[in-house]
Design a protein around this nucleic acid. Structure first.
Length: 291
DNA sequence: AACCGGCCCAACCGCGACTTC
DNA sequence: CGAAGTCGCGGTTGGGCCGGT
């Protein structure tokens, strides 16, 4: 698909914004509202590209922005959300009022990533941390980093640019062999039974060193109830039950949460999507704990 | 005082998703 | 239905700041 350059570079200011430019942008948006970024600079009389204006507004000029000093609570939440979601900064930022994705990303890269990286090197902290062999580091790798959530389930998250959480790596137990002596997929084994999700969309992959399940689904369309009803979210502790998502420690959803998020009613005639669930206050209640 | 290196963070870039026509 | 336009995201860069030498 063809895509024109973001903006003509000629005659446009670049680099740091001046107070004057900030004022022009703020005044314009106060008057006309956000959006239509492409045309905004021309209308506002700014020699900036629309993208730059959008970024400046969202990351710096918005009135509801909270700046500096990430609190311990916020840090805790960032770690937990990152453990769950990976580098999906916008989604993480959505759970932290007043914080921007850029700020959280920077904070992670400059503080938390380093902190956690050092912890990984600490032999005392590594002893419980051998589950995530796929975790290579915290930049540009497939899995979310090991954090100090060392006793939390070995759920790793695929980095994806998608706006929807659509891919999750899960370390499953090895599925049984079929009658031909070949290894079955979790789907064939009956572990996975998302309504409306085909085996094609639930891909099983095996490597020489690690087996993992790649769940490739559109959670915007997937109903949370489907997810909850699947084996991936089995919340009983029966050791016989197959719980490929987290092996020993499946996601645990409280009855309250389940009731709220699986029931439809007059107010919510449609089943809730997983995306909306992640954006709800409930998600706090089942995020992997910090130990 | 000058230089250097590391850190931080605002801003930029490229690309995929989404929307419009 | 496909092409074009737009938006939003995550990764990366670069310049200012600061502490150490």
């Amino acid at each position: 698909m063809g895509r024109s350059p973001c903006c003509s570079k000629e005659g446009l200011n670049r680099g740091a914004w001046t107070a004057h430019e900030d004022k022009i942008l703020t005044d314009y948006i106060t008057l006309h509202g956000e959006g239509r970024w492409r045309n905004l600079p021309k209308r506002a009389g700014l020699k900036r590209c629309g993208k730059s204006c959008r970024l400046r507004w969202l990351n710096y000029l918005r009135p509801d922005i909270k700046r500096g000093n990430i609190s311990p609570d916020e840090e805790d939440l960032i770690i937990r959300l990152h453990n769950l979601l990976g580098n999906r900064w916008s989604l993480i930022a959505g759970r932290l009022p007043g914080r921007t994705d850029n700020e959280i990303k920077n904070y992670w890269n400059t503080n938390l990533g380093k902190k956690l990286h050092n912890k990984d090197k600490d032999p005392h902290l590594q002893k419980n941390n051998n589950n995530n062999k796929n975790d290579v580091g915290f930049y540009g790798e497939e899995a979310a980093p090991n954090t100090n959530t060392l006793n939390s389930p070995p759920v790793s998250v695929v980095r994806t640019k998608a706006t929807k959480c659509s891919k999750v790596f899960i370390n499953p137990p090895v599925p049984p062999l079929n009658s031909m002596g070949n290894q079955t997929t979790p789907y064939e084994a009956g572990w996975l039974s998302f309504e409306g999700i085909t085996e094609k969309e639930m891909r099983w992959s095996s490597t020489t060193t690690e087996d993992y399940l790649l769940g490739d689904f559109n959670v915007g369309e997937l109903c949370l109830s489907d997810l909850l009803n699947s084996e991936m979210c089995n919340n009983n502790n029966n050791s016989d039950s197959l719980s490929p998502s987290c092996c020993d420690q499946p996601f645990v959803f409280s009855d309250d949460i389940l009731n709220d998020w699986t029931q439809t009613n007059a107010a919510h005639p449609e089943p809730h999507s997983f995306t909306s669930f992640l954006q709800s206050t409930h998600s706090d209640q089942w995020l992997p704990p910090i130990n």
